[in-house]
Simulated scan of single mutants.
Amino acid sequence: MGKIYIPTTGPQCWQALLADPSKQWRTGYSARTLANCWEAADGLPSEVAALFGSDAELLIAIPEHKVSLRDAGRESQTDLFALIKANHRTIAVAVEGKVNETFGPLIKNWYSEPSPGKQQRLKFLCDRIGIECPPPDALHYQLFHRTASAILEAERFKTDDAAMIVHSFSPEDKWFDAYAAFLHLLGLAAERERLVSKKLHNGRILHFGWAKGDARFLNA
């Protein structure tokens, strides 16, 4: 993974960073919708800024940011990684863009007859998030590694807080129930357009938020 980044000149620059550029870059799908929204904002989209407060400021954003999970498996490829400053604190933020796409496989499918590598990975993710392993079967694996990515990057960049934000452009808030079930495991009650938070064992605050994106970007 390279460590030198070049500023984008528009949404089209995001396409080449996708795992499957031809398949994933489609009108009405999350990758293209998220890119158009964030590029148009030239900073934080208003719905994301509203989660963090009136003084929230985007310091840097990196599309399709890969985060090592400290094993031999695939990295977690975050739709957008951002460093945000708000309330005199810096926050490492993993942004997951969503329209109608699911949060990927359930734990019961991903962890069926797990290899030693999967056992090691899931234990690592659960330890980072602060929950028992293995977690409930009906939760989505993606939410675990995306949340852990935010925590790992908060440690790496020595930010005050970490956050995992779902930036949803679904008019029906599709998959909010899956997000809420994951937060319930952490002892949190999910709310739309509002941060909920918990303290990690390392003292950092971990935030979660569901931001409702502007539907006009579905046609961009």
Rank of each mutant, 00 (worst) to 15 (best):
Y179H: 13
A181N: 15
F182L: 03
F182R: 02
L183I: 04
H184N: 14
H184A: 15
L185Q: 14
L185M: 12
L185E: 15
L186T: 12
G187S: 04
G187Y: 01
G187V: 02
G187K: 01
L188T: 06
L188N: 08
L188M: 05
A189K: 15
A190N: 08
A190E: 14
E191K: 14
E191W: 01
E191F: 03
R192K: 15
E193D: 14
R194I: 01
R194E: 09
L195H: 09
L195K: 06
L195M: 12
V196A: 03
V196T: 10
K199R: 15
K199T: 15
L200F: 00
L200K: 01
H201P: 00
H201K: 13
H201F: 07
N202S: 07
G203V: 06
G203K: 06
R204G: 06
R204H: 08
I205P: 00
L206S: 07
L206H: 05
L206W: 01
H207E: 12
H207Y: 10
H207K: 12
H207F: 08
F208S: 11
F208C: 12
F208D: 13
F208L: 10
F208P: 10
F208A: 12
G209W: 11
G209N: 11
G209D: 12
G209E: 13
W210F: 14
W210A: 09
A211H: 09
A211V: 11
K212W: 00
K212C: 12
K212D: 03
K212M: 05
K212E: 08
G213E: 13
G213K: 07
G213W: 11
D214F: 05
A215W: 00
R216S: 13
F217D: 03
F217K: 03
F217G: 05
